[in-house]
Design a protein around this nucleic acid. Structure first.
Lengths: 109, 109
DNA sequence: CAAATTAAACGTAATATTGCGATAAACTAT
DNA sequence: ATAGTTTATCGCAATATTACGTTTAATTTG
């Protein structure tokens, strides 16, 4: 096995899980924080700042890009990455719905 | 390799990533939605409702419990699971800070 | 054009995850 | 006590992830 049974879940559950999965690694959290902090797009500065090899960071960027959380444009020799505002908004809304669907119950467990 | 280098990231980044990772599987999203929807604690009803084997669901519940998202109490033969309000609140706050730290920039990428 | 820089892609090793059948443990009911 | 119910745990196979050295492709600079 080792294969997630996506077919038995709803589209919504799969999409949300994919976004969370992409956020489920400290390096990718760190990368997103860096991009946000820099305000303007940053590129391979990450390699110097995080303690990971270039190939590893490139892989994490690819994953973030594949779920649409970031987007990149070639800027001469280097590549400029930044947040994808649409996906960010979508994440914010979906997560908001998810987290707000729970209302604390006094006497439970 | 195959081992996440947690030591090079901040406590905050690791904690957030762990929570996201726990949410990063459609079965676990579905389980949480079910628990929330039932309003009162539900137990192994999940086995009939999701299309996964009992052992698999038990494993997912364990993972959700290990990061503190849910808690369970033995109720006779069965086990009663419900959301852990403290962790839920923590997730809500941490995610809020994270998502709100980004403000869209007009001309970027 | 040649050398340097940047980032993606390839290949590989180590480890983690997913899923399940089978078994075990704990309680309930007969 | 014995049988049934419920859930956790074990062990295993298949697949995914993490990390990195090396190579490749593209661009810039001398």
């Amino acid at each position: 096995m080792g294969l997630t049974k996506t077919e038995i879940f709803t589209e919504e559950q799969n999409k949300l899980a994919l976004l969370f999965k992409a956020l489920g690694h400290p390096a990718r959290v760190a990368i997103l924080q860096r991009i946000i902090l820099a305000n303007t797009c940053i590129c391979g500065d990450l390699v110097g700042e995080l303690g990971l090899a270039q190939a590893t960071i490139s892989q994490h960027l690819k994953e973030l890009k594949s779920v649409g959380l970031i987007q990149g444009k070639i800027e001469g020799v280097s590549v400029c990455y930044c947040i994808n505002p649409d996906t960010w908004k979508l994440l914010e809304n979906n997560f908001g719905d998810f987290i707000n669907s729970y209302k604390a119950i006094p006497d439970c467990c």
